[in-house]
Design a protein around this nucleic acid. Structure first.
Lengths: 221, 221, 221, 221
DNA sequence: TATGAATGAGTGTTCATTCAT
DNA sequence: AATGAATGAACACTCATTCAT
C-alpha cells in the first residue's frame, strides 16, 4: 500500500530484485555455465541491458545471487529463538529448520553446489562475505555447551564437525535424490520418505551427541 | 597383417579411452554447461571429429562419462573382501573405502553433482545403468544383518538410509569444502583435518548402529 | 529574478560547451566510430540526455565539434597581423602559427582525419561551413602577391598548392609520428626534433618561393 | 592452372587471404572502431568464425592488415631499379612511385591514419614489424649521396626529413581532399588537378635538394 | 580411421537512443 | 532544464556440430 510504485518498470530497486530472483532460478537450475543471460532477462521481464547496468556481468550477478542466498539462510537462522529452550529441543529445532529450509529452498542447495564447482571463487571475491559477522558455527556451539552443562550431551564434540554433519545428512539426500532414486530404487520425495529420512537424521545426531544411549530406538517415526 | 589390424583396432580403443578420460576431467571441472568440446579434444590429443564418431554428441559423451564413473566405483566396491571379516570391521572398512575413493577420485563427486543438476536425465537414458545388476545397497545390508545376528548392531536400521548417510558425511565435506573453508574459517584439506573428519564420521556411524554405547568417546582421534 | 533566469541561461550554455569540449576530446582520441556517447557525457559531467537535447544525435554532435574546431583555427588565423609586415617574415610567421597551432591542438589534426575518413560528409551537411566567408587561401595569396611585387618571391606560384604544402609538411609529421617513430627509428617529439623539423619545413618553403637561391643552406638549424 | 583448388571454401590459405582483403577494405573505409566483423565476413564470403580461427580477434586482424599493407608498399619500393639511374631521375622516379602508389592504394593512406589514431599500438605489438630489415630511409639516403657526389644535390640534407616531406606533400593532399575541396573550393581529383599537384610537389623537392636553382620554374607542367 | 575446414545459431556484452518524471 | 531508468538493435566473439577428403 505504502509502495504505490508504478510497477511498469520505472522502479530501479524492484527491477534489480526481479533480476536477482530470476537469476537465482536460472543459475540454480542450469548452473553458472548453463544459465543464459537472455533467459534471466526474460524471466525477470527486464531488459537485458539492465542486468549489466545493475550487476556488471554474468559472473558478478552470480556472486550477487550467492550473497543473497547465503544472506537469506543466515538471517533466517539467526531468527531462531533457540537460546530460550532446552538444549535437546534446541538441537532438534535447528535440525528441523535446516531440513525445512532445504526443502523450501531447493535452489539454495544447487547454488552452493555451483559455488563449489567454481572453487568458491565468487564467494571469495565478494565483499559481503568478508563482513559475515559472528562465526557461523556459533549456534551449534552454544547448544552443545548448554547440553554439556546440563549433563545431557557428551563433552568433546567439535561443533564445526557437528555443524557439517547436520547439514550433510540433509543436503546430500536432497541434492543427489535423482541419481539416488535410480541407484537405490527408492522414492526419495514422497511425504513418507521425507519424514523417514528426517527421523533417521535426527536419530543419527541424537545418538552422536547424547551422553546416555536409550535403547534400540531413540525417536519414534 | 593381423598385427597391423590389431594395432589399428587398439589405437581406436585407445583414442576412445583418451577422449573419455579427457571428458571426465573437463566435465568434472566445468560442469556439463561449462565444458567445451574443443577443450576435451585438445586434452585427449584427438581430433574433435572423433568425439562425434565415437560418442555421437556432447550429451552422450557426458552420459558415457557418468557410466564409466559409476562403473568404476561400483566395481571397486565389489572387490572389497568384506564378507570374510567381522561386521564391525567390515563397516569400518567400507567407510574407509568410500572416504578414500572420494579423496582419490574428486572428479567422481563433481560428476555426481552435475548428473543431479540435470535431474539424472543422462543416467536415466543410459542402457548400462538399467542392467546395473545387484542392488547397490547390498553390501551395507549384509553387514548390518551380520552385525545384528552377532548382537553388536541394533535391529531396525534401514540399510538404504545408512548407505546414504555414510556417503553424505564424506561427500558433503569434500564437495563443499571451498565454501566451507570460508564459512567455518577452518582448513578442510590438511592431513590432520582429513583424519579428524574421518574419525568423526566413523564415530557418528558406529554410535548410530551400535547396540551398546561405550562411554564418552568410541573411537580415538 | 532576472539574475536567476540569467544564471539558468548561462548554465545551459555552459553545459553545451562542456559537452562540446568533452566530445572534441573523445572524437579526436577514438574517432567517430570509436567514441562513446556515455564517455562524452561522463567527461562533460552532464546527463547523457542533454547531449540529445542540445545536439540531436552523435553524428550531429560530431558535426558541431568539427564546426567548432575549424572555426577556432580560422579565427586564430585571422587575428594574425600579417598585412603590416614584410612578406618574407609574414610567410615565416604564418608557418610558425600553423606549426604551433598543430602542436597546441593535436585534437584538431585527428578531427580533420576523422572528417576525411567519412569523406567530409559532416562538413558538407553543416550550415556554418557554407557561410565561411572569405576564401581560406586569402592569407597566403596576399603574402605571395606582396612578395612578388617586392621582387623576393617567384611569380606563378599557386597559392592553393602552397597553402596545402605548408599544412602538409607539418601535419603529416605530427599525425603520423607514431608509425613514423617505428619506421624511421627516430624520436619525433623531443624539443630538438621538433625544432629540426620546423627548420627543415621553413627551408623547404623558402626555397620553393624565393626568387634567388642563396647557396647551400638558407636557414640555420 | 597448377592450383586446381576446389575454390568452394576448402582452401585455408585462400580463405585467409579473402578475409585479409575484405578486412583491408572495411578498416580503411570505416576505421577500426567503425568496421564491423560481420561486414568483413560477408565481404570475404567467409564464415565469421573463420576470422577468429585465423586471426584471433578484430584487433589482431587489424594488425595483420597493417602488416600486409606496409609489407606491400615496402616490397614494391624495393623493386624500384633506382640504383642504376642518375640521382636526379631516381629522385623523380621515387616521387612518382610514391604518388602513384597512394593513388592506386587509397586504402593504404586510410590504414596509416587509423594506425596512428591508435598511437601505432597495433604496429608495436606486431612481430613482423620488428624484423623490418634494412632501414626505411635507405633509398632516399643513397640517392642523396649519389647526387651530392655528382655535384647536383646540396650537402647536409637529412634523408629522414626529406623522406617524410616527400610522403607528406602527396599524402596530405589525398587524405584530406574531402575537406580540402570544400575549404579551397577546388577540384582535387580531376586528372588535371592531380597532374598539377604532382608537378608542384616535384618542383618543391627539386628546389629543396638542388645545388643550383634554375630560374623561375624548374619543371614544366 | 582420421582430420582440417567450415558453419549457423547462439552468447555475453555494448551501443545510441528514448521514456517518464 | 535536467535526470535516472529503460530499451532494441547490434556488437565481438563462441559454441556444438557437420562437411569434404
Amino acid at each position: 500500500m505504502t509502495k504505490a510504485r508504478t510497477r511498469k518498470g520505472r522502479d530501479a530497486e524492484a527491477t534489480k530484485q526481479d533480476i536477482l530472483a530470476a537469476a537465482t532460478v536460472e543459475f540454480s537450475r542450469k548452473g553458472l555455465g548453463g544459465a543464459r543471460v537472455d533467459a534471466i532477462a526474460l524471466r525477470a521481464k527486464a531488459n537485458k541491458r539492465m542486468i549489466y547496468h545493475y550487476f556488471g556481468s554474468k559472473e558478478k550477478l552470480f556472486t550477487a545471487v550467492l550473497e543473497e542466498a547465503y544472506g537469506s539462510i543466515r538471517s533466517a537462522e539467526l531468527k531462531l529463538p533457540l537460546a530460550e529452550i532446552e538444549p535437546e529441543e534446541a538441537l532438534e529445532r535447528l535440525m528441523h529448520f535446516t531440513w525445512d529450509y532445504y526443502l523450501a529452498h531447493p535452489e539454495f542447495i544447487s547454488l552452493v553446489n555451483s559455488a563449489n564447482l567454481h572453487k568458491a571463487r565468487h564467494v571469495k571475491q565478494s565483499e559481503r562475505f568478508k563482513t559475515s559477522g559472528p562465526p557461523f558455527v556459533g549456534l551449534v556451539k552454544s547448544i552443545l555447551d548448554r547440553g554439556v552443562a546440563k549433563g545431557v550431551f557428551r563433552t568433546g564434540i567439535d561443533p564445526v564437525q557437528l555443524n557439517i554433519t547436520i547439514a550433510a545428512i540433509g543436503y546430500y539426500y536432497l541434492t543427489n535424490r535423482f541419481t539416488g532414486e535410480i541407484l537405490f530404487e527408492h522414492d526419495f520425495m514422497s511425504e513418507a520418505s521425507l519424514a523417514e529420512r528426517f527421523a533417521f537424521n535426527l536419530d543419527t545426531i541424537l545418538r552422536l551427541v547424547s551422553r546416555h544411549q536409550a535403547g534400540e530406538q531413540m525417536t519414534g517415526k
